[in-house]
């Protein structure tokens, strides 16, 4: 059964990806989902990003003070935010907020026979429901992550200048040093950015497909919808953390 489920999961993902380039395009649905996934998640992602940046600065300042290296707070905050915490935290928040919503919505469409209705009206539910959510998540997750990274680094700036007394100009110079230190892809794009943007792109896909998968396979009425949402959040979060590890290994291998 488990093996079958994994197969179905990838089957769903494959079909949803193929439909991205197949007519008809449901532009209205994509825009609506971008709003639901991206715009409406903005507040929570920014808030947590800001606090994460602050706590990073706070923790590193204590550690760095032992070596008299507090001026490098900016570098550490930046590296952590862009490479790891920005993408992973934003993704986990979105998995909880959006993934569960996708599962609940599609799950209740399943139990009220709306999925069957789509089928009987000659429309592939994957194309109509899954692909727009996938596109929206693939586009919006990197955007959310960039914003989260930015406010996180800004949060670090607040702590660095207020608690540690590092001038803002110095802080931002160390931020830039960190970004430039990894080198550039195609001469212009810092490798840290590449790493930091591939991750949310992949995580966005995981969130959308996981939510849709459990939603479509909902069984057993409203109780089933509850199960579907819970499973989505658990599975998507675990997948994000596990995939993050392997993705990091690959990216470090590629970009160092």
């Amino acid at each position: 059964m488990r093996v079958l489920a994994v197969q179905q999961y990838f089957g769903l993902a494959g079909k949803a990806i193929r439909f991205i380039v197949a007519r008809p395009f449901y532009r209205g649905d994509v825009v609506q989902q971008m709003d639901a996934i991206g715009v409406q998640s903005l507040g929570i992602v920014l808030l947590t990003g800001f606090f994460t940046g602050m706590v990073l600065a706070l923790q590193t300042s204590v550690q760095m003070a032992q070596f008299g290296a507090t001026m490098y707070i900016g570098r550490l905050v930046t590296a952590s935010m862009i490479r790891e915490l920005g993408p992973v935290l934003a993704a986990i928040l979105v998995a909880g907020r959006v993934g569960s919503g996708i599962a609940a919505q599609i799950g209740s469409m399943r139990v009220t026979e709306q999925i069957d209705a789509l089928n009987t009206l000659g429309v592939d539910p994957i194309k109509k429901l899954v692909t727009p959510r996938l596109i929206a998540a693939l586009v919006m997750m990197p955007v959310l992550t960039i914003l989260s990274d930015t406010v996180g680094i800004a949060g670090g700036n607040v702590i660095a200048s207020v608690y540690v007394g590092i001038p803002t100009t110095l802080y931002w110079r160390t931020v830039w040093e960190q970004i430039a230190s990894g080198g550039f892809v195609l001469n212009y794009i810092p490798t840290d950015f590449v790493q930091g943007l591939i991750k949310p792109f992949v995580f966005g896909g995981i969130i959308a497909i996981t939510g849709c998968f459990f939603g479509i396979n909902t069984k057993g009425g409203t109780e089933g919808v509850g199960h579907a949402t819970t499973r989505t959040v658990v599975v998507a979060s675990v997948l994000i953390l596990v995939v993050d590890y392997f993705l990091t290994q690959v990216l470090l291998f590629l970009f160092g």
């Binding site: 009220t112 026979e113 009987t120 009206l121 000659g122 592939d124």
Partner: peptide, 24 residues
Amino acid sequence: TYEEALVIRQKMGMVFQGAALFDS
């Protein structure tokens, strides 16, 4: 195939027990 079935279904109109209207 699944795709052919989608086309065949267009010859039919189905009324569901719970109406199954798209609630959005």
